[in-house]
């Protein structure tokens, strides 16, 4: 059993709005071991991003607040830490890359300055050494001609290149965990593959763990060892990747997998790609019971009574469903 890096238990991140409490994350358990890639999947609005930002405490408070739960980072709870203490952990231990590479870089500084800033912030280095480190990071993420490119501004890079720069920035202090919040969503397909490949390569080089947030099931199948499926602020299923695709237990997971276009099943005129009917329910004062019940074709009376807890159906495979 590998060492546990991150262990989120019963995390509830709620947002206070004028209409009431939005329970964006409502009792999430998530474990990430050293060196493994964990996928977090679900539709938009399932609380994936809020979970990720909660780990780094990037949630604005107010309106957000941690209602319950613990975020154990190598055994230490992050929730009571203040921003200064969090700054010791950010980048050095846990780093994050965002969805939007086009706007995640500051337009008024060269990319070298920005990477060097992160390095200088966390390591006692001279500006010259930090700049050399920045060029080295650019080389690692396969940006051609890094010695020259460090002096370029973000507008001189393409979207895929900027995401590479973001990865270089995030990895510049060799974090133990990289949170990738839909890192490829804004990029076109060929670039997506390159970025995922790069992340894989970096993972092997630095031995870090990755928390990959995405709604592309194909990406999950290709890169992750374990997968956590979230729905409406709750974890509905968690399993090793083979088990999840081979034997999905939760109707929501089944629906997600069925809605992947398959090349081996010819799309005839009649057979349309399957989808899950309906949308994610409002997280404002959700009803008791399983949150998926309204969209679930197996739903019974039991489902609307109480939310079924996660139970283990196979080693490492847990599912929150009465079925």
């Amino acid at each position: 059993m590998a060492e546990t890096l991150l262990d989120i238990r019963g995390l509830k991140t709620w947002f206070k709005t004028e209409d009431g409490m939005v329970r964006a994350v409502d009792g999430v358990d998530l474990r990430i071991d050293r060196g493994e890639t964990v996928g977090v999947v679900g539709e938009s609005g399932c609380g994936k991003t809020v979970t990720a930002r909660s780990v780094l405490k990037l949630i604005d408070m107010p309106p957000g607040r941690f209602e319950a739960g613990t975020i154990l980072w190598q055994g230490r709870d992050l929730i009571p830490l203040d921003q200064d203490e969090m700054n010791q952990i950010r980048a050095r231990e846990i780093a994050i890359i965002f969805q939007e590479p086009m706007t995640s870089l500051n337009p008024v500084y060269t990319v070298g300055d920005q990477i060097a800033e992160v390095i200088a912030l966390h390591q006692k280095l001279s500006p010259k050494q930090a700049m050399a480190g920045a060029a080295e990071m650019l080389r690692l993420v396969n940006i051609p001609n890094p010695q020259k490119r460090v002096h370029d501004y973000p507008h001189q890079f393409s979207g895929g290149m900027r995401q590479r720069v973001m990865i270089a920035m995030a990895l510049s202090c060799q974090p133990k965990l990289l949170i990738a919040d839909e890192p490829t969503t804004a990029l076109d397909v060929t670039i997506q593959a390159q970025i995922l490949e790069l992340m894989q390569e970096m993972k092997e080089k630095f031995g870090m763990a990755i928390m990959l947030i995405t709604h592309a099931m194909g990406v999950v199948a290709e890169t992750c060892q374990r997968v956590t499926v979230m729905y409406a602020g709750k974890v509905v299923e968690e399993a090793p990747v083979e088990a999840l695709f081979g034997d999905p237990r939760h109707p929501y997971t089944q629906g997600l997998i069925r809605s992947i276009p398959r090349i081996d099943r010819a799309v005839s005129r009649q057979a349309r790609l399957e989808s899950i009917q309906g949308t994610v329910p409002s997280l404002l004062n959700p009803p008791p019971g399983c949150r998926f019940a309204a969209r679930c074709r197996f739903a019974t009376d039991v489902c609307t009574q109480a939310m079924p807890p996660l139970k283990e159906v196979a080693p490492g495979h847990r599912v929150a469903c009465v079925l």
């Binding site: 780094l56 990037l58 700054n87 952990i89 500051n106 912030l121």
Partner: peptide, 10 residues
Amino acid sequence: EFVEAARALG
């Protein structure tokens, strides 16, 4: 996003 990115990186 770049401000958030800076915040996220400490």
